[in-house]
C-alpha cells in the first residue's frame, strides 16, 4: 500500500512538470513583389506628391529586380541577402556591375496583420534621408 501511494505521488509530480516546447523562430521570407505605401524625405511626407504607385521591387531567391525606378538604395537589378535569416537586422543589395554592396537597416514589423519593410537610405546627398515603407502585393 505504501509503495502504491509513493508511486501515485511520483506520477502526479511527473504530471505537474512543465513541458518546454521549443518553437523555432521562422525564417523571414521576403520573396515576392513589394510596392511603396509611404515615403518620406527628411521626415517630410512625399507619398502624395510623387507618383510612387508604379515602383515595384521583386525579390526572388537571392536576386532582386526593380520596375519603374525611383530614387532607391540601388538603381539596377542584382542580388540581395539578409544578415540573419531568422533575426534579420540588415539587408545587403549588390547591384550588377557595381563593385561595392550597399548595406542598410532592415526593419520588418507587422502592421495590421501584415509584414511591411521599412528601408532608410540616402540615394543622393548623404545629408538627405529617405524612408520607404513597402508592402507585399504578391508571393
Amino acid at each position: 500500500m505504501k509503495n502504491y501511494l509513493v508511486s501515485v505521488c511520483l506520477l502526479l509530480l511527473a504530471a505537474c512538470r512543465a513541458t518546454e516546447i521549443a518553437i523555432p523562430e521562422p525564417v523571414k521570407n521576403i520573396e515576392g513583389t513589394w510596392r511603396i505605401t509611404k515615403a518620406t524625405r527628411n521626415g517630410t511626407d512625399l507619398t502624395n506628391v510623387v507618383d510612387f504607385s508604379k515602383f515595384r521591387l521583386h525579390f526572388q531567391n537571392n536576386t532582386y529586380t526593380i520596375d519603374n525606378l525611383l530614387p532607391f538604395i540601388v538603381s539596377g537589378k542584382g542580388t540581395w541577402s539578409l544578415d540573419d535569416p531568422q533575426y534579420p537586422f540588415k539587408i545587403t543589395f549588390h547591384q550588377e556591375g557595381v563593385d561595392s554592396s550597399v548595406v542598410t537597416k532592415f526593419d520588418y514589423p507587422i502592421t495590421d496583420g501584415q509584414r511591411i519593410i521599412n528601408l532608410v537610405f540616402s540615394p543622393g546627398c548623404i545629408n538627405n534621408t529617405y524612408q520607404y515603407t513597402l508592402e507585399k502585393i504578391s508571393k
Binding site: R41, V50, P71, S75, P123, G124, C125
Partner: peptide, 13 residues
C-alpha cells in the same frame, strides 16, 4: 528649394 542641399538623384521640391 527643399532640400537646400541635394544631388540630382534626390527628390526635390
Amino acid at each position: 528649394t527643399d532640400p537646400n542641399s541635394s544631388l540630382d538623384n534626390d527628390i526635390m521640391t
